[in-house]
Amino acid sequence: MNWIIEHKVPMGQWIESFVDWLVGNAAGFFDAISFSLEWLILGVTDILLLSPPSLLITLTAALAWWLQRSLGLVVFIVLSLLLIANLGYWSEMIETLVLVLMAAFICVLFGIPLGILAAHYPKFHTIIRPVLDLMQTIPTFVYLIPTLILFGLGVVPGLISTIIFAIAAPVRLTALGISSVPEELLEAGKAFGATRRKLLFKVELPAAMPNIMAGVTQCIMLSLSMVVIAALVGADGLGKPVVRALNTVNIAQGFEAGLAIVLVAIMLDRLCKQPNRNN
């Protein structure tokens, strides 16, 4: 037993030297990613910040009506946005929204194809399942350190951390959706001469759509839950006032910023909700 205690496995060192190696050999690559993502996020944020809030509120209300056909939701969204603007968190909210939607977009962009692969190749699924578990359960701060070193301070490490945390949802739910497509629908597709490609796009994906959309919604919610942590590494947004309030024990500011986050969360959730389809 003593021998075991005395001879520590240098696990931490291994990871550290791996990160060091990455910094030493692939710094250019990470800088390029960091630079382009930052440019993209800041660009979109700037455009939205330059447009008048009244226009954005109108557009959001119109989107809500188009997606859900619910007058109640439209009223709720307009009132929430007005309240956020009134509290003075408009620009923070825009920054948060861009970060969340960008993270969710990237998650979906990679998550859905990965989910499809996982559903079609069970071996691949067995490989990525523990990886996804790891990404969701490992405390965020643990990988915040290397992402910080690799991508530098700012919005990008926040984005990357958010993606690591949130990508599991679309992968899992896409895989679940695709693998639970009823066998008879697949057979019908094949029997009527669908190619593999058409089978995917005309049968599997539409049949799995409720699950996939649930994955996307979940992904957006998970991304939103990361805003405070993203603020710790320098991402702008509603997380910043929360962190600041925590450091200065400012109850008023903390509550207001927290309320704004909750309102954004409810709006996004209701907007993404699948209209009831009684199949």
């Binding site: 009823p182 008879e184 629908l185 057979e187 019908a188 094949k190 029997a191 009527f192 049949a207």
Partner: peptide
């Protein structure tokens, strides 16, 4: 595929209609 699209079609026990 030629057979499936031009020669033989099928009717299923549980209908197998696409719900969407």
């Amino acid at each position: 595929r030629h057979l499936r699209t031009n020669r033989i079609s099928m009717v299923f026990q549980k209908f197998a209609l696409m719900p969407w």
